[in-house]
Structure formats: C-alpha cells, structure tokens
Amino acid sequence: MKIVSPFPDANFSEHVAVSFDGQTHFLPKGTNLAAALLSAGITVFRNTPVSGAARAPYCMMGACFECLVEIDGVVRQACMMEVSEGLDIQHPQGRNSDDADL
C-alpha cells in the first residue's frame, strides 16, 4: 500500500524524528500519526493476539482499533493521534495490550 500526498502544502511542515520498532522516521509534525506512518511505508501496525495475523488501519476514525500501537507502554489508536517529536512507537505485545485496562 502506498500513500502519496498530492498537495504541495503537506510538504511544508516541519519534519520530526519518530521511532517505530526502533527505526527512525522523519514525519511531518502535527499530521495524523496513522496517516504519517502509512506514508512512511509502514504497512503492518500490529499482529492480532489470536492468530498473529498482520493488521493495519482500516477505518481511520477511531472505531475499529486496527491501528493500535504501543507508545510509552500505553496502547493507543494511531489514527486518533498527531505526530509529535520523539514518539517511541512499538508493535503492541500480547492479548492484554489490546484489551481495555478496565
């Protein structure tokens, strides 16, 4: 899957360093995190706790939870976050990570 940005304005914003599974990516600050990761060529965000199948954003509106990633030990929806400097993102691990804590 390849995401392109056909608008010139998207390229103007400042790019900041974000790490995904230990690899550094420079992403436009303030853009939607899931969109920015997809456009950086990341196609798999997580693996399901049941069969380990690869998953990636599906709805982009906070409803499907396919974009779950782990940031600072907390599992969050990448499609509901914005890119900020220094995000340290990991593949979520195990079943507990995708259940609600409550």
């Binding site: 392109v4 997809l38 456009s39 954003p57 599906y58």
Partner: peptide, 22 residues
C-alpha cells in the same frame, strides 16, 4: 489484510492529511 480500508478512511486521509492511496 493490511491495505484494505474503508472508502471513508480513504476520504479521511484526504481531508485530514492531504494524502491518498495509490
């Protein structure tokens, strides 16, 4: 499968991020 999204998700990419899948 990764790479399958809703059409609405495609539109959200466009509205929110100015991006579109090729």
């Amino acid at each position: 499968l990764p790479g399958v999204m809703t059409a609405g998700a495609g539109q959200i990419l466009l509205k929110q991020s100015g991006m579109i899948p090729e």
